[in-house]
Design a protein around this nucleic acid. Sequence first.
RNA 1: GUGAGUGUAGCUCAACUGGUUAGAGCACUGGACUGUGGAUCCAGAGGUUGGGGGUUCGAGACCCCUCACUCACCCCA
Length: 421
Amino acid sequence: MNDQAKKKQINAIKGTKDILPDEIWKWQKLETEARLVFERYGYREIRTPVFEATELFIKGTGSTTDIVTKEMYTFVDKGGRSITLRPEYTPSVVRSIIENRLNLQPQPLRFYFIGPMFRYDKPQKGRYRQFHQIDIEVFGEKDPAIDAEIVEMAKNLLTRMGVTDTDVLVNSVGCQTCRPGYREKLKQKAEESRSRLCPDCQRKIGTNPLRIFDCKVEACKEISIEFPKITDFLCPECDEHFKQFCKYLDAFDISYSIEPSLVRGLDYYTKTTFEFSSRSLGAQDAVLGGGRYDDMMKEFGGPDICGTGFAVGVERLLSIVSVEENQQEWLYLIYLGDEAKSAAMEVARFLRENGVKCLVEYRERSLRNQLSRANKLNAAWVLIIGEDEVKKGTFQLKNMKTAHQDTVTKEEILKHIRRTN
RNA sequence: GUGAGUGUAGCUCAACUGGUUAGAGCACUGGACUGUGGAUCCAGAGGUUGGGGGUUCGAGACCCCUCACUCACCCCA
């Protein structure tokens, strides 16, 4: 290695980051809460590989979506197969259900999943190249009550994480019978006002007219207010489904607003779409998003089973959670001298066997120094073992908060610690 | 992919319109203080000022290139 190469530090890949010990507790807390909440609603965990055949996402996510056309991590493996790191989760579950014949189990099927996703986006606030999602999916339940139930479940999870200031947006994007007609109508209207729209929106007329509703330019906002809304163009079936969905949301006492521009960037959504957004997140304000995808399974050549679900953006959610770390109390073992060292190791073994978290540091230092260290590391207790203690078979147990100190035997340590817990 | 902003010690920031050896606070290590922590004081360690080139007697500062980070567009969790 030459000098230049030595200097070049190797860093984490752009758009990825380390989750350090000081913050991992938030992740663990969220994962624990998610499992607890989901299992209460009858969901079971499923895990699928991080990479899949590229074709799966082209077919499932949609060949015209941004995700597929420009954001996938795709490579050819040594066997010449085209492989893609999953950019989203739903196609993997659908694949797994078909492949494992899970549809033969009693429906609806309820699954949840926690894991990393990969998208080659340009990183910014709330957007990473490796990011994590917590997903839930339900297959084989057409009733809009289930859509409302998952929204309620989502809200439940957020509340448990101390996040209560989110806005719930809902919409229906219709189905294959009503959406094409609406799209044409919208295009037509937008075309009529083309000259008054910003250049960006003029382009959207051709590519994604629904996105015009999202434009931040005042003029565009005013103009798009008069554009036709999808909710006025739903076919009777979709219309009824959406009305029922809203009715059940009311029954769950969830406040929401109907947002006609909420279309989600994925091609496969039908009927229900929803999103939880937070004002404290910046431009990427969606903490959680989801909806119904009734046609996906069928299009994969699988059974005609409808689906609905949502995904939580873990990094986004964690950036706005307000929960306290629940720190475990632990004991720092101080020894003075060689004999005491062996005794300390023996006591530590005894304590750990009895479920006490304790730390012995192998450094020959003064008592003062070790106490100072225990204090810095935020130990709740200190056990001091010196020559006297070794002779007598008792130890000095000190509570670091109260500075109170007792002379105790090995067995008594357990009682003292439990008493104050 | 497009655009803007920012790069000085582990962290937060100084260093006048370009002028000695780039400083401070916090954090870190040790000592004052030999079996009792948090305080105080002293000392130490820590930097090719992101990297490269240029202008200049002289660049952390000015110019160009590059890299990284951040934010926004786009899109999404």
